[in-house]
Simulated assay, not measured.
Amino acid sequence: TLSQVELATAEWVDWYNHQRLHGEIGHVPPVEYETSYYTELTKPQVTTTI
């Protein structure tokens, strides 16, 4: 049925984004890599002037 296809698709998308280990990004799930990336972007940058 349509609802079964929708549920199966949602489950696959959840697995694809949150559970599978992606080899090109260090064998971490894509959502974990993305979270880490944006965390690094928002950290204050330390600069020095001489």
Rank of each mutant, 00 (worst) to 15 (best):
E24R: 00
G26V: 05
D14F: 08
W12K: 09
H18Y: 13
H22Y: 01
E32F: 02
Q19I: 13
T42P: 01
H22E: 00
L21N: 11
P30V: 01
T47H: 13
Q4A: 13
V28N: 03
T47N: 03
W15G: 02
T49P: 00
T39G: 00
P44G: 03
L7W: 03
L41W: 01
E11R: 10
Y38I: 02
S3V: 14
V31P: 02
S36Q: 15
S36F: 10
W15R: 12
T48L: 07
E6A: 14
Q19D: 13
Q45D: 03
Q45C: 02
V28L: 09
Y33N: 03
T35M: 09
L41K: 01
P30L: 07
T42S: 11
G23V: 02
G23I: 00
T47V: 15
T39R: 13
A10W: 14
Q45N: 12
A10D: 15
T49L: 12
S36W: 11
E40D: 05
N17V: 10
W15M: 06
W15A: 11
E11C: 11
E11I: 11
W15K: 06
L7T: 12
I50E: 07
V31G: 01
E6N: 08
E32L: 06
H27E: 06
E32K: 04
Y33L: 01
H27L: 09
E32P: 02
T9A: 11
Q4I: 11
L21I: 12
E40F: 13
T42D: 05
H18T: 15
E6K: 15
Y33W: 13
N17G: 02
H22R: 08
A8H: 08
L7P: 01
V46R: 09
G23K: 00
P29Y: 01
S36Y: 11
T35N: 11
Q19T: 15
E6Y: 14
L21G: 07
